[in-house]
Write a protein that binds this DNA or RNA. Structure first.
Length: 428
RNA sequence: GGAGAGGUGGCAGAGUGGUCGAAUGUACCUGAUUCGAAAUCAGGCGUACUGCAAGGUACCGAGGGUUCGAAUCCCUCCCUCUCCGCCA
């Protein structure tokens, strides 16, 4: 959420910043509301002040056993106007909040301006894609060839966009998550967290998935009770740990890592990546989350992205880092680096991690604060990034480490997690 | 799922219609005392909006209602605890 003060005092600058995202926002409604709000709010508060002081007099008179009917008549005279302006003010504030809740974050000054992914800027490349002396297969063919990846049965059990892993591939999937968690906790200073997979609407509002993106979520209805939602990312439960909290300055930075399944309805992704494991309704991800002092978020963003890159490097997977342009960034982000891993079957780099700095945007929605040098509550900055998407990492290993006979070499870093196994061979 | 109790400031905890944004304790900050500290004493100490300021307004789990006036009464929801049942 943006700072309402900023919108009031410097709307042009806000509009200019948001316009970088490519869809200029019409603020005429906001201006109209704001013009009405100011006078209405002072008038309402003035009436409330009169009512409060008169009511206090009634109390005093009655306490002294005196007649209060004259003062009561005075208060009664305020009634209609007070009621009307309170109601109107309530409406106005509701409309303000609705507008505010749907405004995306303002891109950071260092973000390249552009309309879509074609304007993203590659800023780093690591590793050299392997050359194969045979026709490379994609991960679906490799996995099905091994007899360890089964989309047909997954479709029978659940439907499209689910996968069933078996044997070595299932174990590799588990090994990847363990390896990532161990690396981030022992080498990068994160605290491991296990968090709920079902969350309430307030949490999703806090990180920015609600109210605008409800159709992307799986919603669980429970009769009369409030619905719960399956998490689309561990970012939601983990970041919301600090919702409505005022942290001691010494508690920052908070560095948390969490492995969860993620559930996305993929509404509107129609037809894209239907084959294979790239885009699923359910996938595992190891998520890095940091809550930091506002002065530190830019540095933390670089650091966190480096932590995700370390996993790719340890696995020997070629990748590149891209800074997303203003038009390609997510709703809540001020700046985002995507890490893209090389997929030989697609002959291209594909997103495997997205690392974002949200500035105070999420913290303001969540009211996540810390006590600053003056002992005053101040909004934290939040960041997160995939470290990494487990399913896509599995895909990358299958494709990059495939051999002519259909087997797949297991990266050395993972072998301790695979009982020393060096090769995924076909299940007989 | 059944029965009951309860949600108040950083924490504990009083307050059951009026002078309550809220006693008291504790924690914290400042000052006095001290060589220094402890103890003691004095003062300060919630969040947000608004105003040059004085001040004003809102907030006692959330949302509605009753009333001239609600932390306090009523309704709905959320959460916590205790006992029973069920269960990995």
């Amino acid at each position: 959420m943006l700072d309402i003060q900023q919108l009031r005092s410097n709307l042009d600058a806000v509009a200019e910043g948001l316009a970088k995202r490519g869809k200029p926002i019409d603020f005429t409604a906001f201006r109209t509301l704001e013009a009405e709000r100011k006078t209405l709010q002072t008038r309402t508060q003035d009436l409330q002040a009169q009512r409060n002081s008169l009511s206090k007099q009634i109390g005093m008179l009655k306490g002294q056993g005196k007649d209060a009917s004259e003062v009561m008549a005075q208060v009664g005279a305020l009634g209609d106007e007070l009621k009307a302006s309170e109601a109107r003010l309530g409406e106005l504030l509701t409309e303000f909040n609705a507008i505010l809740a749907t405004l995306p974050n303002i891109p950071d000054d260092t973000v390249p301006v552009g309309a879509d992914e074609t304007a993203n800027v590659e800023i780093k490349r690591w590793g050299t894609p392997k050359t194969f002396d045979f026709a490379v297969k994609d991960h679906t063919d490799i996995g099905e060839g091994l007899g360890q990846l089964d989309f047909v049965t997954a479709a029978k059990i659940s439907g499209a966009r689910f996968s069933l892993l078996k044997g070595g591939i299932a174990r590799l999937h588990r090994a990847l998550a363990q390896f990532m968690l161990d690396t981030h906790t022992t080498r990068h200073g994160y605290t491991e967290v296990y968090a709920p997979y079902l969350v309430n609407a307030a949490s999703l509002f806090g990180t920015g998935q609600l109210p605008k993106f409800e159709e992307d979520l799986f919603k669980v209805l429970r009769g009369d009770q409030d619905p719960l939602y399956l998490i689309p990312t561990a970012e939601v439960p983990v970041t919301n740990i600090v919702r409505d909290e005022i942290l001691a300055a010494e508690a920052l930075p908070l560095k948390l890592v969490c492995h969860t399944p993620c559930f996305r309805s993929e509404a509107g992704s129609g037809g894209r990546d239907v084959r294979g494991m790239i885009r699923q309704h359910q996938f595992d991800k190891v998520e890095l989350v940091q809550v930091v002092h506002p002065d530190q978020s830019a540095a933390a963003h670089e650091e966190l992205t480096g932590h995700a890159e370390a996993i790719l490097e340890a696995l020997g997977l070629p990748y590149r880092r891209v800074v997303l342009c203003s038009g390609d960034m997510g709703f809540s982000a001020a700046k985002t680096y995507d890490l893209e891993v090389w997929l030989p079957a697609q002959d291209t780099y594909r997103e495997i991690s997205s690392c974002s700095n949200f500035g105070a945007f999420q913290a303001r929605r969540m009211q996540a604060r810390f006590r600053n040098e003056k002992n005053k509550p101040e909004l934290c900055h939040t960041l997160n990034g995939s470290g990494l998407a487990v399913g896509r990492t599995l895909v990358a290993i299958l494709e990059n480490n495939q051999r002519a006979d259909g087997s797949v070499e297991i990266p050395e870093a993972l072998r301790p997690y695979m009982g020393g196994l060096e090769l995924l061979a076909p299940t007989r």
